[in-house]
Design a protein around this nucleic acid. Sequence first.
DNA 1: CGCAATGCAATACACTCGCATTGCGAAAGG
DNA 2: CCTTTCGCAATGCGAGTGTATTGCATTGCG
Lengths: 198, 198
Amino acid sequence: MPKKVDHQERREQIAAAVCGLAARQGLDAVTLRQVAAEAGVSMGRVQHYFAGKDEMLLFAFRAISDRVERRIAEAVTALGPDPSARDVVRALLGELLPLSTAARDEAPALTAFLARAVVEPALAESLREGGAGLRGFIAEKIRAVPGERDAVREAATLTALVDGLMTQVLTGQVEADLAVAVLDLHLDRIFGGGPGAR
Amino acid sequence: MPKKVDHQERREQIAAAVCGLAARQGLDAVTLRQVAAEAGVSMGRVQHYFAGKDEMLLFAFRAISDRVERRIAEAVTALGPDPSARDVVRALLGELLPLSTAARDEAPALTAFLARAVVEPALAESLREGGAGLRGFIAEKIRAVPGERDAVREAATLTALVDGLMTQVLTGQVEADLAVAVLDLHLDRIFGGGPGAR
DNA sequence: CGCAATGCAATACACTCGCATTGCGAAAGG
DNA sequence: CCTTTCGCAATGCGAGTGTATTGCATTGCG
């Protein structure tokens, strides 16, 4: 067996270039040559690690989804031990809005993939998996709130709300501040009062 | 002056082809040749009515935005005289969700343009105009509700929610039924009780 | 030392893209 | 009539696309 390189790492490195390109210039700008240039590698290398463009895009979408998920997990654990349900949900959803530097880089790429998922079933399926997990987790947290009747509906409301806020912030329809205020207002409705257990 | 044709009508006819194509196959499939084929005209004609692809896309986006607006106005007037604020807002937002045949055709095209607006300022500006008008109108209706504190925030919440619901329905993340239930649940929160004045 | 398998660069290929150009038929004003 | 102007079809062009192919350097195994 000849040379050994970390196959997975190389693929993720190329996926990062795909996402960066998609975020700044949209998925239209994601061509094999541009991706290679963005990653600082040759086009042959890109071809070596992906059977075709579609597979590359699908992998890149899964990669960025994983990155977001990991970032969310970090934000939640950063809350310390025994956080309130409200704080957990807020931290979770806050990571989806383009507030931090990392999220600002990822959000445009996510919306680009989202739009493509409307016409590409392979992406839509991958999207559904992640979305279902997210809504399930939120629903679970909401169920912990006394007096909450329909956790599934509330969870769907929250994810849809954040989804919409993300695109509205990215298109400059609302300021990031307002988006946060809207999210907090809605969390108040579900969990009652302000931050913490209150 | 030679032959006379309705310039505006021809442009809108081509714009309809753009939207249909974008809805079914995404904006990637919107090429001058494909648009011509979809509209059943020659490519020369498409070029004759638009200076370039970008102008065509911008016009198509404005055209579909206008069509949605008109459909919303119809739905609202169809409520009859003196409708409750809740019913007006519900009819308005319901037309944005892919429920009716017309909306199901338009929604995918809208999301395609939305994603492009993230990286194309010209589209984003046009989007902001329409969005601001929509939020303003909703805020006005909400202000009519006694005891409502922050109409602007509530209006932003509603538009973001519907935005998110639209994409989640289109990507198969939630069923249309659930989306309607979520919308109604949230309208209840703002306007109180069920439909009508209750 | 072979030597085969791997990682990758380079290039060729068949298309397709948006755009510019050319030309011509039809129709309204002089 | 006849000339001018508009509406449009047809074609060509250069750039860029995804994919396939070729070739070679490197490397671990026998």
